[in-house]
Write a protein that binds this DNA or RNA. Structure first.
Length: 486
RNA sequence: GGCUCAUUGGUCAAGUGGUCAAGAUGUGGCAUUCUCAGUGCUGAGACAGGGGUUCGACUCCCCUAUGAGCUACCA
C-alpha cells in the first residue's frame, strides 16, 4: 500500500471555522496514525473572497494546535507550488482542462449570465431554484468555438456529464452511493477569469500531490459523484473519501458565524485553551470506543481510526466544551497557567496584591478564563452588599450574631502579627474553639465581611492573607458599621 | 420542488441479531467542607413511528415522519 498522504486545503477567507479545523485535525490524525504525510494547500481560487491576513490565521492555527504539516507553501516537498493561484499562473489547470476537452469530457461554454438566468426556474415561493445547464454550448461546432475564442469572447469550461446512466462512488463512512447522471449539472471547471473552480482544482491537485485520503465535510457528499466522473475522465485512481458529519449549532443548523463560537479564534477569545478545543472537536463525530474522553494530540494520533467516524451531525455543545476546558486548566502547569490567567486578573485587580495567589485560588474553579473576572472582583474593592448576607441557616448565624462575632474578633486580628494563612487560622480557630461554636458560625461572618460575596474562591483565611491586614481590618470595621446601623 | 444523507436520554456517544442498552456532559438528591469549586454516593432520563425478515430485532429490508446538506463563474 502506498504511503498515506492527506491534505488540508483551506480557502483564505477569514477566521478558522471549527468544522474546517476538525477536518484538518482528522486529516492530520489519519496521516500520522499511519506515519504518513500531512500537507497544506491554499485554495485561493476565489479572488473575490480572499481576505488579507487569512493565510496567517491558517498558519498560526496549525502551529498553536500542533497540526504540523510536512509539506506546504513554506515547506516544499516536491509537489509545489502549494498555492492554487500560483499553480494557476503556471497553467496547470488549463492544461488539464484542455485534456478533458480533447477527450470530450469537457467543453467551452460562452453563455452569458443573462442567458444562464433564463434557465433558472422558480419552483415554489420558497425561492427554491433549479438551475441546470442545458448543454447549449456542447453543440457548438469547432468553427464556432474557434471563432469565439479568437474573438476573445469570455468563456468557461464545463464538465460534460452524460444525461443517461448512473455514477457510483464509495465513501469510507457513508458507504456506496449511486446517483443518476441526469441529476448532475455540467459544473464549471474553469471560470471566465481563468481560475479553476474548487471542484476542479481540488481533483487535479489531489491527484498531482498523490493524496490518498480526501477528508471533507459532508456538505460535499452530494457533489462527490461529479468528482468521481472527473477522476474517471482522466483515468486516475480515486482517493479514499472520508466525509465527516456536519457540526451544527444548538438549533441543529450548520454552524455559522452568527452562533458566535463558530471559529477557533472566537473560542480563544472566549477563554478556551487550544488543547481543550482540539480534544473537544476530535470527539465531535468520532469516538475511541473506550470510556476515555481526555486525549492529547499524541494520544489522538495513536487512537484515531477514521472508520469509527460517525454518520450523523453533531451539535456543538458549549457546556461540555466548558467542562473539558476546566479539566485542561486544572491540569495545566503553573508557568503557562499564570501566563494565560494573569492578564484576565489584571483587568479587574489594579491594587498591589499577590496576583499569583489569586490565580492559584481560581485555577481549580474556572471553566474558561472569562470566568475569572466575576470571581475575583471583590479583591479590588468590596462590593456594596446587603447585610442579609449574614443570615445563614446552615451556618447557624444571623446579623446580630455576626455583629458580635466580628466585634469580638476584631481586636484579636488587630493584634495579630503573623498575617500568614496559618497565622490567621490560628487566631480565628482559637476564638471558635474558645466560644465552642461551629466553624461555619465563626467563619461565615468573617468571609462575608472581607469579600462582600455569597461565594468566593477560597475561604476567609486565603482572602485575608491576600488583601492584607490593613484592608481586612478596614473591611471588618465597615461590616461592623453596616450591621450596627442596620 | 429535486437529489443525497441522517435519526440511541437535553447534548456527545458505545453498541453491529439474544445486553437489566455502556460511559461522558448537563440535571435532581445526599454526604463532606467556613462559601464556591472539588470529591464520594445516588436518582431521573434514550433505541422517531409503522410494516416486514427471523425462534428472536436498537442492530437487516421497506414505507412514513422529522431533521440536515446540496441544488453558484463559493468553497
Amino acid at each position: 500500500m502506498s504511503r498515506v498522504r492527506t491534505r488540508y486545503a483551506p480557502s483564505p477567507t477569514g477566521r478558522m471555522h471549527v468544522g474546517n479545523l476538525r477536518t484538518a485535525l482528522y486529516e492530520y490524525l489519519i496521516a500520522k496514525h499511519e506515519g504518513g504525510d500531512f500537507l497544506l494547500r491554499i485554495e485561493d481560487t476565489d479572488q473575490e473572497r480572499f481576505v488579507e491576513g487569512a493565510i496567517d490565521i491558517i498558519y498560526n492555527t496549525l502551529k498553536v494546535t500542533g497540526l504540523t504539516h510536512d509539506e506546504g507553501p513554506d515547506k516544499d516537498g516536491g509537489c509545489g507550488p502549494y498555492v492554487q493561484s500560483e499553480r494557476q499562473a503556471r497553467g496547470i489547470y488549463m492544461e488539464y482542462a484542455k485534456q478533458l476537452i480533447e477527450k470530450g469530457e469537457a467543453y467551452y461554454c460562452f453563455c452569458t449570465k443573462e442567458r444562464l438566468s433564463t434557465l433558472k426556474s422558480v419552483v415554489s415561493e420558497d425561492d427554491k431554484e433549479i438551475i441546470k445547464y442545458d448543454k447549449h454550448c456542447l453543440y457548438l461546432s469547432k468553427e464556432e468555438i474557434e471563432a469565439n475564442l479568437t474573438a476573445g469572447i469570455p468563456y468557461v469550461i464545463r464538465q460534460n456529464i452524460p444525461a443517461e446512466g448512473t455514477t457510483t462512488f464509495q465513501d469510507a463512512i457513508y458507504g456506496v452511493i449511486t446517483v443518476d447522471n441526469g441529476e448532475l449539472d455540467d459544473m464549471i471547471l474553469m471560470k471566465s477569469d481563468g481560475f479553476p473552480t474548487y471542484n476542479f482544482a481540488n481533483v487535479v491537485d489531489d491527484h498531482l500531490m498523490r493524496i490518498t485520503h480526501v477528508v471533507r465535510g459532508n456538505e460535499y457528499l452530494s457533489s462527490s459523484p461529479k468528482y468521481t466522473r472527473l477522476y474517471h475522465a482522466f483515468g486516475w485512481e480515486e482517493p479514499i473519501y472520508v466525509h465527516c458529519p456536519l457540526i451544527t449549532n444548538e438549533e441543529h443548523k450548520k454552524l455559522s458565524k452568527r452562533s458566535g463560537h463558530s471559529s477557533f479564534e472566537d473560542l480563544l477569545e472566549q477563554g478556551f485553551v487550544t488543547e481543550a478545543i482540539v480534544n473537544f472537536i476530535a470527539l465531535l463525530g468520532w469516538s475511541s470506543g473506550t470510556n476515555e474522553e481526555i486525549f492529547s494530540l499524541e494520544e489522538l494520533v495513536k487512537e484515531f481510526d477514521y472508520h469509527h467516524i460517525n454518520k450523523s451531525p453533531a451539535v456543538f455543545d458549549m457546556a461540555k466544551l466548558k467542562w473539558m476546558n476546566g479539566e485542561y486548566i486544572k491540569k495545566m502547569d503553573n508557568e503557562r497557567y499564570y501566563e494565560l490567567a494573569l492578564p484576565y486578573i489584571r483587568e479587574v485587580v489594579h491594587k498591589e496584591l499577590d496576583l499569583y495567589k489569586i490565580a492559584d485560588l481560581v485555577k481549580t474553579r474556572i471553566e474558561t478564563f472569562l470566568d475569572i473576572k466575576d470571581m475575583i472582583d471583590f479583591f479590588e474593592e468590596i462590593p456594596d452588599y446587603d447585610t442579609a448576607m449574614y443570615i445563614h441557616k446552615k451556618m447557624k448565624t444571623n446579623e446580630e450574631l455576626s455583629l458580635s462575632i466580628l466585634q469580638e474578633q476584631l481586636p484579636l486580628l488587630e493584634g495579630l502579627k503573623d498575617y500568614s494563612i496559618a497565622g490567621i487560622e490560628a487566631v480565628i480557630m482559637g476564638y471558635i474553639k474558645e466560644k465552642g461554636i461551629k466553624n461555619g458560625t465563626g467563619l461565615w461572618p468573617i468571609r462575608t465581611a472581607v469579600s462582600g460575596k455569597q461565594s468566593t474562591p477560597g475561604g476567609a483565611y486565603e482572602i485575608m492573607n491576600i488583601i492584607g491586614k490593613e484592608e481586612s481590618l478596614r473591611r471588618i470595621k465597615l461590616a461592623i458599621a453596616k450591621l450596627s446601623s442596620r
